[in-house]
Amino acid sequence: MDELLYFFSKTQPRRPTVVRQVLSNKRTVSNLFWGMRYGIIDWLAVCPRFERAKFDGEIKELIRRGRLIETGDREVLLTETGVKQCTAFESQHYRIKKPAIFGALKTQLWQELLRLLVQVISEASYHNRRYFVVASSFQAQTIIKRWYKENRQYDLGRVLGEQLLLFLENVDRQHADIFMQLFSGHDVIAKTIEQVAADTNYSACDVQFLWEDLSASLAAFLYNGSSIFKSLVAPLMASSRLSKSAAATYGLYESGLPLSTIKTKRRLKESTVIEHLLEAAIFVPTFDFKRLLSVKDYYVLRQLFQGNIDNWSYKKLESVEPTVSFAKFRLYQIEQTRLNADNISD
């Protein structure tokens, strides 16, 4: 329950609903925008199966215990007690360090592949062909079989060993030890999550997070490296953080086509095309805002809005200059958020 405190702030009122929807990967533009404003957009898709009732219950309990306080309009703030509790919690539990990878990686499948890969290469390092294969899906077994056939001529044991050592060099020692205890191989039997938890001060949930976090980070490490294993990870790693459909729309936009042509080519409503572009504005660092905002738009927006971006209201704009659309207003907010990344409170 206390891990939810990570997602709230002492100074910036935040809506629990947005937090929940970001964690469970509900990609509406509004969620993405506020996720960006809250500085938690990297957590998109970390808990895809978080149940609404459970989440709401925990928030209620945190309010009851005075760790969060309601500030109206379904928003809450961290209290002084909440901040203390959060720090205390963090010192005793594992906190996911690279949440952004979760959104880009097929995590479930990768974890299966990784376990199988380690076992297969480990047994091969001892020239053993008779062993019980770790529990895994048909899909994972097929992928590993095919990959292994293509690459068996290389000294896989040595290379994988080196890659793991390199990767774990930059990981906390205790965390690295725990991580490696979760693998089975030749004459090495994995411990269960519960067994590792019993040996350490961590809960089973912490160990599970550690496993997911480090296996995802390892995927990114191999993906960004140039070892033979890159070819195994690459198909599981999305090149962009955009949804598939938004990526297709943005591709056309990037090639310089006008919106009207994109609309026809993609057979989408104009509003959908705009939503896709807003998603791209949030995720793509090189997004070209100037193509959608005219000099005049900038002039109007700059005149009207300064200070804390959270508090800007489209109503104010609408009453003065109704020709500037809500989408343009949102784009400007996104761009300004980018420019003063410092202004994002945590």
Binding site: S125, L164, L168, R173, F179, M180, G185, H186
Partner: peptide, 18 residues
């Protein structure tokens, strides 16, 4: 016995016969 797997270095060496 179960907890005798040891540190990550040792496990990796054991796993891949290094």
């Amino acid at each position: 016995k179960v907890s005798q797997n040891g540190g990550y270095n040792r496990i990796i060496k054991k796993l891949f016969n290094l």
